[in-house]
Amino acid sequence: MLASDMLVAQNVGFFIIAAAMVVGALRVVTTRNVVHAALWLVVVLSGAAAQYVLLAAEFVAITQIMVYIGAVMVLFLFGTMLTRAQIGAEDNLNNAKSWIFGVPVAVLMLATLVIALNDGFGNEKLPMDAPVVNTQQVSDQIFGPYLLPFWALSFVLLAAAIGAIVLARRD
């Protein structure tokens, strides 16, 4: 493989962001502090937004930042704040001895996925001259062929909002 068709800058960027995302994800599932887990999750989510930009998906990247880092993360921090009195490390976050099941399941699943992906895609390259998908194309999709799922999604969001209010209301 020639260096000229490798797109060095994008590959370096990808691997730096991917390493940060994997480290962040591992910390999310291993840390003993709920607030730290939420902050490591921010690293993973913003890394994902950066990968979306590398994948030429600008609108999804912006949506990711606004919805996840702006809204979902605030919800998580509120949830943490409202459900626990203890600040700092906590011993009671994990099931006892659960890594005996968790590690083999995760490793086996990863091995299966890696083998399947290597079989299926090998050294196939992404088309790097593809144009960036702009917001107009995405909205043509949503309000064209995918209009019915969009309506269904509006009802899901409405039901979720009402449901959350009903559940969290203090009677």
């Binding site: 590959n11 994997v22 099941f101 890696v114 895609f121 992404l126």
Partner: peptide, 27 residues
């Protein structure tokens, strides 16, 4: 850029997430 780079990243994140769902007790 290879297709597999991104798909592998997705696979790794998926497995870490599954591990977290199995191991964690806090909702």
């Amino acid at each position: 850029m290879l297709v597999n780079e991104f798909l592998m990243l997705g696979a790794v994140l998926f497995c870490i997430g599954v591990y977290g769902v199995i191991v964690r007790k806090n909702a």
